[in-house]
C-alpha cells in the first residue's frame, strides 16, 4: 500500500546551517503519528518544509509525496489546494492564528469558499454545522462573535473547525494543547480523536509531551537534532525504548504513581545546529557512547517488526535497559 504522505531525505538549512538532516516519514491513510522531541529537534520544521511554509531563504531538499505526487517545490497554485484542503494544520497559539477583527463566520466561510466551492446560504449552514461539530454551544449565534469573545479552549475548537472546513486527509497538529489548562487539554484531545475517527483522517501530532503523544497516536517517531532517532508503535516505544535518547526522555518524566525515584536527567544540552558534533549528534550526552559513535552518523535501521532505531549501540542499550528492568 502506498503511504498517503511519503517524506524522504527531507533536509532544511537556514543560511547554510542545517537544522533538518535527512528525515524519512511515511504516513498511512487514517494513521495517527506522533512526533516528539525537545525544542530545536526539527519536529515543526519538518512539516513547515513539507508544505512549503518556510521563508524563502530556507534551503529545502528531499522529496515529499502526497498520494504519490511530489509536492516539494510544486507551483503555488497546486500548493494552495493542498494546504488547508488535503492537509490542514493547527498550531499551538490559536489566538494568533485567527484574525481579531473578523467574525468567526467570515473566517470559517473563507476556508469553505476556497476549498469547498460552496456559495451563499450553503456556506453559512456548513459553518454552523462545523461549529456544532466541534462542540461550540449555541453555534448559530456564536458565528457572529469575534475571536476575543471565546476562551482559549474554544478558540482551539474553532481552529479545528477551520481545519475541517477543507475536508482534509491529514491534520497536522503542532503542539495543539500546550497553551491550554489540563482539563481543557483533555477536552481538545478527545475532540481531535473523535473527529479523526469520524472523518477517517490521518493525523500528525507534534508535541514535547510524551504522555499526550503516547495516548493519542498509533506510532511515534522521536526526533533529536534534526533527525529521527527511533520509530516504533507507541506502546512498544514507551514500554521498551531502545535509543539512549528515547530512554532518557522517558526516564526524565516524573511518574504520577508508584514509588518516587530520582529522575534520570540527560546531562548537557541539545547541540547548537551550527556546531553539530561529528557522527551521532547525541553521543556527547550519551552514557553508552563509544569511540565509534563519533565516526559516522548512524542510520535508521530496523530492529524488529515496525521498529527502527538509529544507534550503533542499540544492542548494548537494550541490554542496559533489561538490566535496569531486572533490578
Amino acid at each position: 500500500m502506498t503511504p498517503l504522505v511519503n517524506i524522504q531525505g527531507l533536509s532544511v538549512a537556514f543560511n547554510g546551517v542545517p537544522v533538518l538532516r535527512g528525515v524519512d516519514i511515511a504516513l498511512g491513510k487514517g494513521e495517527a503519528l506522533g512526533l516528539v522531541g525537545e525544542s530545536g529537534s526539527g519536529k515543526s520544521v519538518t512539516w513547515l518544509a513539507a508544505l512549503g511554509l518556510l521563508p524563502r531563504h530556507a534551503k529545502v531538499t528531499g522529496s515529499v509525496r502526497l498520494d504519490g505526487r511530489e509536492i516539494l517545490g510544486a507551483p503555488a497554485g497546486e500548493l494552495d489546494r493542498v494546504r488547508g484542503g488535503r492537509v490542514a494544520m493547527i498550531f499551538q497559539d490559536p489566538a494568533s492564528a485567527l484574525n481579531p477583527v473578523l467574525t468567526i463566520r467570515k473566517q470559517l466561510s473563507e476556508a469553505l469558499v476556497l476549498h469547498r466551492d460552496l456559495q451563499g446560504n450553503a456556506v453559512k449552514a456548513e459553518a454552523r454545522r462545523l461549529l456544532d461539530l466541534v462542540g461550540i454551544p449555541d453555534a448559530g449565534r456564536r458565528l457572529e462573535a469575534y475571536p476575543h469573545e471565546f476562551s482559549g479552549g474554544q478558540v482551539q475548537r474553532i481552529m479545528i473547525a477551520m481545519a475541517l472546513a477543507g475536508n482534509p486527509d491529514v491534520l497536522i497538529a503542532d503542539e495543539p494543547t500546550t497553551a491550554l489548562d489540563a482539563t481543557i487539554q483533555a477536552q481538545i484531545l478527545e475532540l481531535m480523536s473523535s473527529v479523526r475517527r469520524e472523518f477517517g483522517m490521518a493525523m500528525v501530532l507534534i508535541s514535547h509531551d510524551l504522555g499526550v503523544v503516547a495516548e493519542n497516536c498509533d506510532r511515534v517517531a522521536v526526533m533529536y537534532a534534526g533527525r529521527i532517532v527511533e520509530q516504533a508503535p507507541s506502546n512498544q516505544l514507551f514500554a521498551d525504548p531502545v535509543h539512549p535518547y528515547a530512554q532518557g526522555l522517558i526516564g526524565a518524566l516524573p511518574p504520577l504513581d508508584g514509588p518516587r525515584r530520582r529522575l534520570t536527567a540527560i546531562p548537557g544540552t541539545v547541540p547548537d545546529p551550527a556546531m553539530m558534533p561529528d557522527g551521532c549528534a547525541f553521543a556527547p550526552r550519551c552514557a553508552l557512547a563509544s569511540d565509534s559513535c563519533s565516526l559516522a552518523a548512524p542510520t535508521l535501521a530496523p530492529i524488529a517488526d515496525q521498529r527502527t532505531v538509529a544507534c550503533i549501540r542499540a544492542e548494548a542499550s537494550r541490554r542496559t535497559l533489561l538490566g535496569i528492568a531486572a533490578e
Partner: peptide, 19 residues
C-alpha cells in the same frame, strides 16, 4: 487528565465546560 505513557485514554474523566 494527566496523560501517561502506556495508558490509553479510555476511562478518562473529561470535564465539560470552560475553565
Amino acid at each position: 487528565a494527566s496523560p501517561a505513557p502506556g495508558r490509553r485514554s479510555a476511562g478518562r474523566i473529561v470535564l465539560a465546560g470552560d475553565p
